[in-house]
Structures are given as structure tokens and as C-alpha cells.
């Protein structure tokens, strides 16, 4: 297959990590909560999934069940972290930035402890092909597009549909824009904030699992999940808080990020080792550009939710 097509598919597959991370973050932010714990939650999601797979990887369970249980493991761990965040920021109204950053430190550290205790052969080598259904065993890069890749696309599209086409989405956006108004019309603000944070965290957690088990499928993969978490948060701005836009954004990020390693394979371009880090910087440069452009255009619809980062107190005298 053409190396350019390979490159594109590889970028798509890599981008799915960000689709999970940023779709999860968008849902949380739409409820008015800036969750900087996403990197930690992605790490914990990955670790949780691997922990379950480590237990059942060598068992005689059908592949479908193993994949499902792995996903549920990731969801459970990520949502547990999301639950901590939600309890602190929604119920106790703690500062969202501090809580999120703490959660990231916690999640990254704990996930590393868990991952070093696991057996790569069991959780990774024996289950990898199950996750790569339906293209498992192929020699070209199509093998990179597995169950979790298609799930990522579906999650992003469904999230957008829910947010912008259903009453639930309308209510959720109202909570993030103006919780006082939402409260006055009888929307349960606390419930929406909790659910958005929990579901968003769960989705982000799948990104960690996908990266470790499927996309990289290597022993060292878990070490870089945190970095992708931060990039996912940047991507939220790139996608202008629209989950379906993360598909495009993630692919662009994927392309830009893979460019560094890909470009060395292209015979007619000369690169030195020094230029590769510069190329790897591109996604961040693009994020800054998008921020500048969206600020200059100053369209109300492209701005973050109005009450993002603010705790909601019901007005009392």
C-alpha cells in the first residue's frame, strides 16, 4: 500500500486517542466543569482495563467477552476518578483547577504502580488481536483500525447528536451556560453535572486503554498516556466544544504528530534529528493559532461555556 495512505490511516488511528480524551472533556466542560484531571483519568482508564485483562487474558472466555470486560474495567476506573472529581467540585465546590491537577498527579502515579505489576504477555500479547477485530492479522496499516477505533468515532458522533439535537443536550448546555437559569426551570443541576463528569471521564478512560492495548500495543505505551491527555484538553478548543469536530481535529493532530517520524521515511525530504522535535511541536502551535483565530472572530457560539470553571451556589439570602 502507498506510504501516504499508510500515513493517513496511522494518523487516523492515533487520533482516536484524542477523540476519546477530548469528547470526554467536552461533555464535562459543557456542564461547566473544567476537568484538568483528564490526563490522570486516561492513565487510570488504561490501567483499569489492563488490570482486568491481566486477570482474564489467558482464560477460555470468548474474545467478545474479554474485550467487553476490558472496556468495562477501563470505564470503572476512569469513572471512579471522575466520581472523586465530581464529588469535590460539584458537591464540595472545591476549586476545579486544583482538583483536576491533583487528580492528574494521582492518576498518573497510581496507574504507573499498577502497570508495573502487570504481565505484558497476559494483558497485551494475548488480547491484542481481539481488540483489532475485524482487521486483525493484516500486514498493512488497516490492522490499526480496531474495535475501539470505531467506537471512538461512534462516541464522538453520538455525543454531538445528544448535545445538539436532544432535550438532554439542551439541558446540559443550559447547565454549563447558566446554572441559575437551569435551576429555576427545574433542571437538576447537580445531577447533570455529576452525569456529565462521570460519562465524560469514562469516555476519556477508554482513550488510555485504546492507546496501550491497541494503537501502540507495547510495554512502554502507558508512560506517554499523560501527554496525550494534555493534548486532548487542547483539542477541545480546536474542536470549538463540538464532539464531532474532534474527529477532524484529532486526525489533524495525529497527522502533525506523526509527521516527525513519518518524514524521515520520505526519501526526498532531508531532515535532521533537530527538526523532528520542532515538527512534534506543531499540534501545540496549531492550537494556539485556533485560539487566536476563534478569539478574533469572537463569535458567541465558539466561546467556552459561560460558567466554565465556576462553582454553582443556589442563590440564598
Amino acid at each position: 500500500m502507498n506510504i501516504w495512505l499508510n500515513f493517513l490511516i496511522d494518523s487516523l488511528a492515533f487520533g482516536a486517542v484524542f477523540i476519546y480524551g477530548s469528547t470526554g472533556e467536552i461533555l464535562t466542560e459543557k456542564a461547566g466543569h473544567l476537568n484538568l484531571g483528564i490526563p490522570g483519568i486516561m492513565c487510570m482508564g488504561g490501567a483499569g482495563g489492563c488490570l482486568v485483562l491481566n486477570a482474564i487474558g489467558k482464560s477460555a472466555l470468548p474474545p467478545f467477552v474479554i474485550v467487553t470486560l476490558g472496556i468495562l474495567g477501563a470505564l470503572a476506573f476512569a469513572m471512579l476518578c471522575g466520581g472523586i472529581y465530581a464529588f469535590l467540585t460539584v458537591t464540595l465546590r472545591a476549586n476545579q483547577n486544583v482538583t483536576g491537577l491533583t487528580l492528574t498527579t494521582f492518576g498518573v502515579g497510581l496507574s504507573k504502580v499498577i502497570m508495573t505489576k502487570l504481565d505484558t504477555v497476559v494483558y497485551l500479547v494475548s488480547t491484542r488481536d481481539y481488540f483489532r477485530w475485524p482487521f486483525a492479522g493484516r500486514k498493512d496499516s488497516l490492522q490499526l483500525l480496531g474495535v475501539l477505533f470505531f467506537l471512538a468515532i461512534a462516541v464522538a458522533l453520538i455525543s454531538s447528536w445528544v448535545l445538539f439535537r436532544t432535550k438532554t443536550g439542551l439541558h446540559l448546555r443550559a447547565v454549563g451556560e447558566n446554572p441559575g437559569t437551569a435551576d429555576a426551570v427545574g433542571i437538576n443541576v447537580t445531577r447533570y453535572k455529576y452525569l456529565a463528569t462521570l460519562i465524560g471521564s469514562g469516555i476519556a478512560g477508554l482513550g488510555g486503554l485504546y492507546y496501550i492495548i491497541d494503537y501502540m500495543a507495547s510495554q512502554e505505551a502507558y508512560l506517554s498516556v499523560e501527554a496525550w491527555g494534555w493534548l486532548s484538553i487542547a483539542l477541545v478548543i480546536f474542536a470549538l466544544w463540538r464532539p464531532h469536530m474532534t474527529i477532524i481535529g484529532s486526525t489533524v493532530f495525529g497527522i502533525l504528530f506523526s509527521l516527525g517520524s513519518f518524514i524521515t521515511n520520505v526519501s526526498w525530504i532531508k531532515v535532521t534529528m533537530a527538526t523532528i522535535p520542532l515538527l512534534k511541536m506543531l499540534p501545540y502551535v496549531v492550537t494556539i493559532l485556533v485560539l487566536i483565530i476563534s478569539s478574533i472572530r469572537n463569535k458567541r457560539e465558539n466561546q467556552p461555556p459561560a460558567s466554565l470553571g465556576l462553582s454553582y451556589f443556589r442563590e440564598e439570602r
Binding site: L170, R173, A174, E177, N178, V185, E301, A306
Partner: peptide, 26 residues
């Protein structure tokens, strides 16, 4: 209320229907 409770970013119709539980699909 004296201070309007409206979501600025929404349309009039979206604000009006906010929080209303109705039968059938939205």
C-alpha cells in the same frame, strides 16, 4: 423575575422549552 433567567446563547424557543417535560421526542 426582575433579573431575567435566560441562557444568552440559546434562541428564544430553546429558552422557552428548557426544563419542560413533554410527551414524545423533542
Amino acid at each position: 423575575h426582575q433579573h431575567f433567567k435566560l441562557v444568552d446563547l440559546f434562541t428564544a424557543a430553546e429558552n422557552i422549552v428548557l426544563g419542560v417535560e413533554e410527551e414524545g421526542r423533542y
